[in-house]
């Protein structure tokens, strides 16, 4: 069994006094795509925000390639190989597409790597346009491109299919797997669209009220039984 590159060890996240995520442990191996599934309000986005450092951990540890990032600021986590695509994309609307990608580059990098435009050709066409004027699907691809610019080892994707038309969802699924294969990337994606999760994931974890209730490899999963778990 290969070692996990990414490990969240019994993390706890609270808003004030109310606990939203309690003692959740999750790991991912090199090249693995893990889907974190759950209905609205189950704490998926909270987990993602806590992992990138936008929310503080009340307890628990976060390891990336053996390095402890529990207390690191978001940009320090990015420097150590974590990247984040938030729910709702959050591209910088008045910056151009190209500038958005540049904002994700490490200080040492020169120019936008050609591979980002290869994965998402539409970004190259639109590179002089302001990001705020792109469609939802294009903004999603831009947000992924911006995250890839930091050359991460682990990519966190929060609900990438939200508000995006089905044909683009399929295209994003194909691109994600291609990126994973070519770059040896580990991806943790939170999702409520079952078909998308089953299309990309190697392993599925199901979250209910801030805790993991089920985890299994994609191969062992029946769509019907997963549907039952999600409907709890």
């Amino acid at each position: 069994m290969t070692e996990s590159v990414f490990e969240a060890d019994s993390i706890r996240v609270c808003y004030g006094e109310s606990e939203v995520v309690g003692k959740l442990s999750l790991d991912a191996k090199q090249n693995e795509i893990v889907a974190l599934m759950g209905l609205n309000g189950m704490g998926k986005t909270t987990v993602m925000k806590a992992l990138i450092g936008l929310l503080p951990l009340r307890a628990g540890r976060l390891l990336l390639g053996g390095k402890d990032l529990t207390r690191a600021a978001p940009f320090e986590r990015v420097a150590n190989g974590l990247a984040y695509v938030p729910q709702g994309r959050m591209v910088f609307p008045t910056l151009t597409v190209e500038e958005n990608i540049v904002s994700g580059l490490p200080a040492s990098a020169r120019g936008v790597p050609a591979e980002i435009y290869e994965f998402f050709p539409v970004l190259k066409e639109m590179r002089k346009r302001r990001a705020g004027n792109l469609s939802g699907g294009q903004q999603q691809q831009l947000a992924i491109g911006r995250a890839l610019a930091s050359n991460p080892r682990v990519l966190l994707l929060d609900e990438p299919t939200e508000g995006i038309q089905p044909s683009i969802i399929k295209e994003i699924a194909v691109q994600l797997k291609r990126i994973r294969d070519e770059k040896g990337l580990t991806i943790l994606v939170s999702e409520q669209v079952l078909s998308f999760a089953l299309a990309v994931a190697d392993r599925v974890a199901v979250m209910v009220r801030g805790a993991l209730v089920h985890q299994s490899p994609r191969a062992d999963l029946e769509e019907a039984s997963l549907g039952k778990l999600l409907a709890i």
Binding site: I52, L54, F75, V78, A79, M90, F92, T94, S103
Partner: peptide, 10 residues
Amino acid sequence: QNRAMASAAG
């Protein structure tokens, strides 16, 4: 434009 997201972008 977005201090939190800028930090999360690195």
